[in-house]
């Protein structure tokens, strides 16, 4: 699972950097957007495996916790507390919720940056009548 995520992160980074190196600012903006996604994916990849280790499974069996919401018994539960966990130790069977909170915040911030960047593109297009990097650079040289 972690491997799959790692490959996803790598591919997303590659695509976003390819886009950011392009000659058109629209592509660059899309690259910025993808870059944020790549970072978020990498946080998920780093936040621990969604699969229980043997020791965790044994603890779970020992505690007599029965998983309800997951298809296969070795996958961890989503981090939602239900009554069945009230008096038991759910941590081993739960996915760590904090990275998800981080990602949620990061997505919102990325959204704001994206909105700003797109607005900037519109304004630039209105002022310069182009959003090609080379054209903008040429104008800069003439000026």
């Amino acid at each position: 699972m972690t491997m799959v995520l790692a490959i996803c992160v790598a591919v997303t980074f590659a695509v976003s950097i390819y886009l950011m190196l392009g000659r058109e600012l629209k592509g660059v903006a899309m690259g910025v957007f993808l870059l944020g996604h790549a970072a978020n994916l990498s946080i998920i990849a780093m936040s621990g495996s969604p699969v229980q280790t043997d020791a965790q499974q044994q603890t779970a069996e020992h505690a007599g916790v029965h998983l309800t919401s997951v298809d296969s018994p070795e996958m961890k539960d989503p981090p939602i507390l239900t009554n069945q966990y009230a008096n038991e130790q759910p941590l081993a069977q739960m996915v760590d919720p904090l990275p998800q909170a981080l990602i949620l915040t990061a997505i919102v911030i990325g959204f704001g940056v994206m909105a700003f960047l797109l607005t900037l593109l519109v304004v630039t297009n209105r002022k310069a009548r182009t959003i090609e990097v080379s054209d903008l650079a040429e104008e800069a040289r003439e000026a």
Binding site: G36, A39, N40, S42, I43, M46, S47, G48, L98, P99, L102, A106
Partner: peptide, 10 residues
């Protein structure tokens, strides 16, 4: 920075 923070947490 965001990735770094994620790595620190990991």
């Amino acid at each position: 920075f965001l990735m770094g923070a994620g790595m620190v947490y990991g």
